[in-house]
């Protein structure tokens, strides 16, 4: 069981990296990766939100949607839950841990439209929906944590590279977005190397 979970964690974070092999959450990856600090802030916020959102969505699936045979409502329910949850996390952080809120606050609203959050919640239900309740919750949370750590790793690495290439002499037509996409492509090739690990 533990070994399986560790494999799941490595698989979700490195082998099937959420950005570089599944293309979820590209907008923040390209938009908020100019500086390592802001990228790390965004990454940590995403880790928190994806983990909590997946736990809540799997819980709702197990307690409400599955017993009532309403699983076709997954998409509608999950997106509303995620939107509400992000607001709630924002309010709680503001009240309880103002210092963390100041650090992450601006990234929280951006996360609602991060397709990785909804994607992970839906994939959990799709892949682990047939498991027993307890097992499904554990697998969902581990998968969500692994996936979002993969996001954190990718966005911080990207920001590190972008800081280095910022003042480089890039061909004029490749300046800006194109060189960032080339960087992302090279990173994706590097992450292909993990494919044989498990």
């Amino acid at each position: 069981m533990i070994g399986e979970l560790i494999l799941l964690l490595i698989g979700a974070s490195l082998v099937n990296n959420v950005i570089l092999s599944q293309f979820l959450g590209l907008c923040p990856f390209l938009g908020v990766s100019k500086k390592v600090e802001t990228a790390a802030g965004m990454g940590v916020a995403v880790v928190c939100v994806i983990t909590v959102a997946s736990a809540v969505c799997s819980g709702i699936y197990l307690l409400l949607l599955q017993p009532l045979n309403l699983t076709y409502l997954n998409t509608i329910v999950f997106i509303l839950v995620i939107a509400a949850l992000v607001q709630l996390v924002e309010m709680i952080l503001k009240k309880m841990i103002p210092s963390l809120y100041r650090a992450l606050g601006i990234y929280l609203p951006l996360i609602t439209t991060n397709c990785a959050v909804l994607g992970v919640a839906l994939l959990n239900v799709q892949d682990y929906g047939s498991y027993s309740a307890g097992k499904m919750m554990i697998y969902s949370i581990v998968n969500a944590f692994g996936t979002s750590s993969g996001f954190l790793v990718a966005i911080v690495l990207m920001a590190g590279v972008r800081e280095r290439i910022q003042n480089n002499d890039v061909t004029s037509s490749f300046r800006g977005q194109p060189i960032v996409l080339v960087t992302a492509g090279l990173m994706a090739i590097a992450f292909c190397g993990f494919a044989g690990v498990i």
């Binding site: 194109p178 060189i179 960032v180 492509g185 292909c192």
Partner: peptide
């Protein structure tokens, strides 16, 4: 996966 980034980068360039 990497090809997608390369094609899009050439397009934007």
């Amino acid at each position: 996966a990497p090809g997608a980034f390369f094609v899009l980068s050439v397009l934007t360039a």
